[in-house]
């Protein structure tokens, strides 16, 4: 009986070998499918992780509630580390990147009169969105947000085209495709704009595309040169 009992322990120890191999496979798949939690070796973060254990999602939610509160109280700058923290806890949570980038490039940008500072926050917003793209490269959302920021806030149409072209490679709403056509026009790429508007004809933006194509044929595209000639800014 005593000898037989050793068999139980022996099998248990022996089973650790396939468990070890399986763990290697699981680690590989976690990396492959981007399931790994991102923990950096900073003292505060390690302590935080210890307390949070497996409940990072709930921690991210509590921080998000703080963001909401600070937002309504008008604490523009206090929000920044909160965005970073939520993004660190749940880097696949697209909203935090999108809202964080927009907050820097639009809200903080508008809160200052200093042109240098404006430029700084516009760049910070774009950089935050790019960081978000690095974590979420397989979805249109952040490419669109960055493309829109370049298009609308920076009037940097070359970069807007670059990121909107990436956005439309993934399943996305029709307005993204339509914005790309606008960006082509503003970037002086009229042929590409016509091609893109033709593609937009098959979407919910059909009437907009028809009108745009008609204007391009009859009056010319809204290139920067034509806009200047017509005395039109971006808000037109």
């Amino acid at each position: 009986m005593k000898n037989k009992n050793w068999v139980n322990l022996f099998i248990a120890v022996l089973l650790y070998i396939p468990v070890g191999f399986l763990q290697v496979h699981i680690d590989y798949r976690r990396k492959l499918e981007d399931l790994e939690a991102r923990l950096m070796l900073m003292p505060g973060q390690v302590a935080g992780s210890l307390v949070l254990s497996g409940f990072r999602g709930v921690a991210a939610d509590l921080l998000w509630l703080n963001i909401e509160e600070l937002w309504h109280q008008g604490h523009t700058y206090k929000l920044l580390p909160m965005f970073e923290s939520v993004a660190w806890l749940q880097p696949r949570y697209i909203t935090v990147w999108a809202v964080g980038g927009w907050h820097m490039a639009y809200n903080i940008y508008a809160s200052t009169q200093d042109q240098k500072e404006k430029k700084y926050w516009y760049e910070q917003g774009a950089a935050f969105l790019k960081k978000g793209i690095a974590y979420n490269p397989e979805q249109y959302d952040l490419y669109f947000e960055l493309g829109w920021t370049y298009y609308n806030k920076g009037e940097d149409f070359a970069n807007a085209v670059k990121y909107l072209e990436k956005a439309v490679k993934f399943p996305c709403p029709d307005y993204v495709k339509s914005l790309l056509a606008h960006a082509y026009e503003n970037n002086d790429q009229v042929d590409k704009a016509v091609e893109q508007w033709t593609r937009v004809l098959n979407t919910g933006f059909e009437s907009v595309a028809k009108r745009a194509l008609k204007v391009i044929r009859e009056e010319g595209a809204f290139t920067p040169t034509r806009r200047r000639r017509l005395g039109m800014g971006m808000e037109d």
Binding site: R30, D34, L35, R92
Partner: peptide, 12 residues
């Protein structure tokens, strides 16, 4: 290993 919920809640 069993924690996929952080990814599942954001649509992964």
């Amino acid at each position: 290993n069993f924690n996929i919920r952080d990814q599942v809640v954001v649509g992964v």
